[in-house]
Write a protein that binds this DNA or RNA. Structure first.
Lengths: 340, 340
DNA sequence: GTGAAAGCGCTAACAT
DNA sequence: ATGTTAGCGCTTTCAC
């Protein structure tokens, strides 16, 4: 027994399909008696209008696709949460996909999404894609007239709305903060050296140093891939220089740095101050608790969703593309010395 | 300019729609020349077959709906990750929805999903729904013939495939573990007192106590809602009894317990041993690191997805409903004393 | 080789 | 008050 359709009901009552359609929609055109009998029968048999058919007619699915590089990263979960919140309020569902930082999976997923399944798309690029700079899949989307919002990991090669963090400025200000609390030798640890985000933060860090008469030393910059041994890399740098400040580009990295530094006998923040990006669940609970740069993930998600839905619902408005910059804020905890 | 369709191409070449359809599908029926010209034109104009139309014909969307109570809980993220992995491999997309532990949002979401949008559904019930025991929305789903898999927070009122953790046994064994390391007074802290999961674990805890000649004391059971002050509740219990073991039912609770206990001057595990459920990101990095019951979230997700997809793809197999029980395992870290 | 016809489930405009 | 027609975009017979 398959799902019941208007046709089935029509046959059962010996009436036409539109009659049934009107009846279930409680149209005034249909006689009381018939209407009631049809409605009763429909309910008893769990009739539900087939969304697929409606979507085809309306050319809309009320679904938005979301593609993130990594769902085990708390930042992206927060963004997802924000997107879901707004989407749900406005009556949209979200199709969430994960690229696992892979160019291929990202491209494949986009190709699937790009054919009527979604009314719009919210994407954060995989690291591999940003590294390669190959944006065909996304440009295919935009050339296909599907609204697209990029967030966090964005690219200049794509013309669309964007929501980003002020990564350059955040890193700049954070580096300055290190200086303010008296740090002289500030290391920079990046697990995302290839992404736009990592690059911008690196530039902010560097600029803050040179602007303020500090030396920029490439040795103080640690790029660590997922398979690198951070412990070893850190040991190297720590041996070389008398480091008193470390900036980690995501939460898990900051926590790992803390562990490594502590295990080597340094006091935090006595000997070394630590700040990390992404204020998630970890930083509050480790000891000492970590000073973090909050990116306001949920807010980013909400903004992206609003931007997208606005575009979906005003297809002819011909609005110029907008890049929304969300300011970060520093959550000061125990891992940094007090301001001098 | 709207999306290009077969009709548009047909008009452009002055041929019929089926001809174009065959041409883009590279059918041998169509002459070389025409085929090539059509294919070229189609590619240039970004022609993509409209999925909506195909879905309508095939009565399938290659999408599965996932509904979880709370996405900021790492366990559910892990499950989601597992589901996505399997789904992606088998060519399905995921529509992820969040109930926020609300009965109403859950019901509404299910109603939306229940009309052709998805080929199947994976759900973990909201706490409110389990408390109320009102399963209409889900039974509507099953009566509508759409495959459903429930995981973790399940209900006997619904006949479908299920994937659960051996909550009773896990709590039983964990309580026994406390005894083995010499704990006499074991408290039980539950933020999910109303869910099946919380209830089963409570029973396991209780049974372990009475089976082994320990007293079960309701005062040692702390049910803490999201707005309760755990600090206060704990202070109460700690003042009353000489507690030397605490079991927390999720990761964040376990971490909070650790903080509270430490702040009150107890040594962990010297004075008090702590074990938590859900082996996530936090427990490894707090100090002392926490001994945790791993529920293998990713594996649960993979299992649920496999079960569901198998059902979707064998609609007539008439398989009996299956409940898969995933064994937990204890990850021993520093928050528990060594076995005596 | 190409096209006409039918149908997926539904709705909207237009008869009767 | 009910039915007919047409169409959303596509595929699949089946004719020519």
């Amino acid at each position: 027994m398959n799902k019941i359709t208007l046709k089935d009901i029509a046959k059962h009552f010996g009436v036409s399909i539109p009659t049934v359609s009107k009846a279930v929609h409680d149209s005034y055109e249909i006689s009381r008696g018939l209407k009631e009998r049809i409605q009763k029968y429909a309910k008893e048999n769990h009739y539900k209008p087939n969304k697929l058919a409606l979507n085809l007619i309306n050319k809309s699915t009320r679904a938005i696709g979301v593609l993130v590089p990594n769902i085990l990263n708390y930042f992206f979960v927060q963004v997802l949460y924000g997107i879901e919140k707004v989407a749900h309020e406005k009556g949209y569902n979200i199709i969430s996909c994960i690229s696992d930082e892979s160019f291929e999976k990202e491209s494949k997923t986009l190709a699937i999404l790009d054919s009527g399944t979604v009314d719009g798309l919210i994407v954060s690029l995989s690291e591999e894609t940003q590294l390669k700079g190959k944006m065909e899949a996304l440009n295919e989307i935009t050339s296909n007239q599907i609204p697209l919002v990029l967030f966090d990991r964005v690219s200049d090669l794509i013309a669309c709305d964007k929501v980003v963090v002020d990564d350059f400025e955040a890193a700049y200000k954070t580096t300055r903060y290190f200086m303010d609390i008296g740090c002289k030798n500030i290391a920079f640890v990046s697990p995302i050296g290839n992404s736009s985000v990592g690059i911008l933060r690196h530039e902010g860090y560097r600029k803050a140093l040179t602007d303020n008469g500090y030396d920029y030393d490439a040795k103080m910059v640690i790029n660590c891939g997922p398979k690198d041994d951070l412990d070893l890399l850190m040991a190297f740098v720590l041996a070389e220089k008398k480091i008193d400040g470390i900036l980690g580009l995501d939460e898990i990295t900051a926590v790992k740095i803390l562990q490594i530094v502590k295990s080597k006998g340094y006091e935090v923040p006595g000997d070394i101050s630590i700040i990390g990006f992404t204020n998630g669940q970890l930083s509050k609970y480790v000891s000492p608790s970590l000073t973090m740069v909050s990116q306001h993930g949920k807010y980013i998600g909400e903004s992206a969703a609003k931007l997208l839905i606005h575009r979906i619902e005003n297809p002819n408005a011909d609005l110029p593309f907008e890049t929304k910059v969300v300011k970060t804020s520093l959550i000061v905890r125990e891992s940094t010395k007090k301001t001098e």
